[in-house]
Design a binder for these strands. Structure first.
Length: 693
DNA sequence: CCAGAAC
């Protein structure tokens, strides 16, 4: 059971809500008969939470044979990359919307009603109380530029928000440097060339189920001529191990760095000859997408108005601090308004939210021009994010833009009572922002109608294409209107999104900003090679400092443990991870944002997208497994052109693996040995060095 | 394996 390894006690209960009770009762039921550990109550569960629902609502053992079938079909669907359980094509137009067998099984009415009756009200009351407390306490001395982060939306989603500023201040120059101008115009040059070939981006890939493609060909809008295929190069996607080299030809720079002994290490890195026996988990490096590089200086004089956004939206953007478009925004707004599918890669903190958010609002507005907003209308746009915090943050940016033209947004994410979300949907909203689980849930319950969605956005799109996310995302996208426009954004966008592009996008435009690599940023990357037994103390030493520090841990338990350890050492710290209830997650993040606590220990729930001003030190207590994770985690600092430091702790055994990861991330970082009490720790924590620099 | 995402 939960061992409080700390004498002071109390805090664990305060900040940590263990789930053993629920878990054990779950685990017995959620196991599926096919699993090897079947039948042993309390033994390890078969997998991720996503599987839980299968058995959960259909508890009786009688149904096991039916469930078994579901499970098998599901597995088959995973293998084949398509969702159908009954062998019929997954998407022959819309008809799938009306209750596919799997849905019925998984969400039978009884279970639904029950959950609503017993669960929601109680939790609702609880959350309400917490939120109110938060609200009260935030109201006072908080800097005015920050008041947006409190969980104020519990009452009324529709209320126009007064302050929106989860974004970096635009006044600082966090745009990519302008110092390279090989090219004059960011788009002009490719316009003339129209080979006009019909879409063919992924045509050459093998297993494309023909049954779900055809409907794409006769999509309504998309009148635009096809632009030259800058987009996906037509190379087939590599499966993990067969990649010849992890650094494609499109990553030319960095010749400056001393090359690692090439041949052997390159070919070996993905081979299972790694230290730990089972190296099933490989940091797959997908091909980078061939993208049109936007030259920052080419858009220097452009305004949002030039990009065809309406007056009100431009004004709302200005109030958000976005006076003029960042390069990624200047690049993506026109094609989005043209109705094109767009893929965009922009460095962390480069303004991606507005890059899709502003044109999305404009597009929805145009589509409704002339018609009244009717009560109970179903949403026209959908934005999917991988975490609830990110969904909230996106809404904080989009909502004021939408409200400026009379459109409504609502958040649809889990961990909070459904009632408010459902209520908003009932009244009618224009833009839904949320996470896959709850969206699919409400969709299945018939409370969220996605059939009118004309624009769907995937933020952190590559992440949304990873194992546990891909399928729900696919199912959700299939419910959107035929031919709906799709926008995929991420700082690490690569061919991992091929699965979605293949099925859902038509001749997408792909953009990135020229000269954006991680080294062009303002982040100082360091790797500390330490003895494992020193780790706790070194961490405490690093964290004991003035500025805001974000610590990443690999597991929830370790994140929790570290936050308690720091707290016990007299360094106020909070945790952020999935074992906390949503109220605590929201509150702990807000306390970090508002500066009421300076140390936050998080799992990768905070790795992507989350913006907190002024984090000047990111510590990776556990090194990440993937280079993308490294990039996203480190992207929590060095925002808005400020300087930041990323310190990664590793043991000696991990040096080589770490170097390989850094190579893949294209980051140079010195490895330095560190022991307890070393000056180096003082320097990194900024205790001796002048922090202003 | 972990992390994340629904009741």
């Amino acid at each position: 059971m939960p061992k409080n390894k700390k004498p002071a006690g109390g805090r664990a209960a305060k900040n940590f809500e263990p789930r053993y009770a629920a878990k054990t009762s779950y685990q017995d039921r959620k196991r599926r008969p096919g699993d090897s550990s079947v039948g042993k109550p309390g033994s390890k569960s078969p997998g991720h939470r996503g599987y839980r629902a299968d058995a959960d609502t259909a508890a009786p053992k009688r149904r096991w044979s039916a469930e078994e079938k579901v499970g098998r079909d599901e597995a088959r669907a995973i293998r084949d990359g398509r969702p159908s359980r009954d062998g019929r094509p997954a998407r022959d137009g819309r008809p799938s919307r009306d209750g596919r067998p799997s849905r019925d099984q998984r969400f039978d009415r009884d279970a639904r009603g029950d959950g609503n009756r017993s669960d929601a009200p109680r939790r609702g009351a609880n959350l309400d109380r917490v939120d109110r407390d938060d609200r009260r306490s935030f109201g006072d001395g908080r800097p005015s530029y920050r008041s947006d982060d409190r969980p104020r939306r519990d009452r009324d989603d529709r209320r126009p928000s007064f302050r929106q500023d989860d974004r970096p201040q635009r006044s600082f120059d966090d745009r990519p440097r302008r110092d390279r101008d090989e090219r004059p115009a960011f788009r002009g040059d490719d316009r003339p060339r129209r080979d006009g070939g019909p879409r063919r981006s992924f045509e050459d890939r093998p297993q494309r189920s023909s049954d779900d493609r055809p409907r794409r060909d006769d999509r309504p809008r998309r009148s635009f001529e096809d632009r030259p295929q800058r987009s996906f190069d037509d190379r087939p996607r590599r499966d993990r191990d067969e990649r010849p080299a992890f650094r494609g030809d499109d990553r030319p720079r960095r010749d400056d760095r001393p090359r690692r002994t090439d041949g052997p290490s390159r070919s070996n890195w993905s081979a299972p000859v790694r230290d730990h026996a089972q190296e099933q988990r490989v940091d797959v490096v997908h091909e980078r997408l061939q993208a049109e590089a936007v030259q920052a200086e080419a858009v220097a004089g452009t305004t949002f108005g030039d990009l065809d956004l309406g007056q009100n939206i431009v004004k709302a953007l200005a109030e958000l601090g976005a006076a003029t478009p960042f390069p990624i925004q200047a690049a993506t707004i026109p094609p989005i308004l043209d109705g094109r599918d767009v893929l965009a890669r922009g460095r962390t903190g480069s303004g991606k939210t507005i890059a899709f958010g502003a044109p999305l609002v404009e597009a929805v507005l145009r589509s409704q021009a002339g018609s009244k907003r009717v009560f109970g209308r179903s949403p026209k746009a959908l934005i999917l994010a991988p975490t609830r915090e990110l969904a909230l943050q996106i809404d904080r940016t989009i909502q004021p833009i939408a409200r400026s033209v009379g459109l409504f947004t609502t958040q649809v994410y889990g961990g909070v009572p459904q009632a408010r979300q459902v209520g908003a949907l009932k009244k009618g909203v224009d833009i839904v922002i949320g996470t896959p689980g709850r969206i699919e849930d409400l969709q299945n319950q018939g409370k969220l109608d996605l059939s009118d969605v004309q624009i769907a956005v995937l933020d952190e799109a590559d992440h949304m294409c990873e194992l546990g996310f891909l399928e729900p995302v696919q199912r959700i996208l299939r419910f959107t209107e035929d031919g709906s426009q799709k926008l995929l954004f991420s700082a690490t966008l690569d061919r991992e999104v091929a699965a979605l592009v293949d099925e859902f996008l038509v001749n997408p435009a792909v953009y990135e900003v020229a000269g954006e690599d991680q080294d062009s940023g303002t982040i100082d990357h360091r790797v500390l090679v330490i003895d494992h037994r020193d780790k706790a103390e070194i961490l405490s030493s690093l964290v004991d400092r003035e500025g805001k520090t974000l610590v990443f841990a690999r597991t929830r338990a370790y994140a929790e443990m570290l936050s308690e350890q720091f707290d016990d050492a007299g360094i106020p710290a909070l945790a952020l991870h999935g074992d906390l209830n949503q109220a605590k997650r929201t509150r702990n993040l807000e306390k970090m944002t508002s500066g009421r606590v300076n140390v936050l220990v998080a799992t990768d729930v905070a790795a992507r997208g989350i913006h907190v001003d002024d984090i000047d030190l990111v510590i990776q207590a556990d090194a990440p497994d993937e280079y993308k994770t490294y990039l996203h985690r480190s992207g929590r600092t060095g925002r808005a052109g400020r300087s930041g430091t990323v310190v990664t702790l590793i043991t000696r055994q991990r040096r080589r693996r770490m170097q390989e990861l850094l190579d893949r991330a294209e980051i140079d970082a010195p490895f330095e040995e560190a022991r307890i009490g070393d000056d180096l720790l003082e320097e990194l924590s900024g205790r001796q060095v002048d922090p202003t620099r």
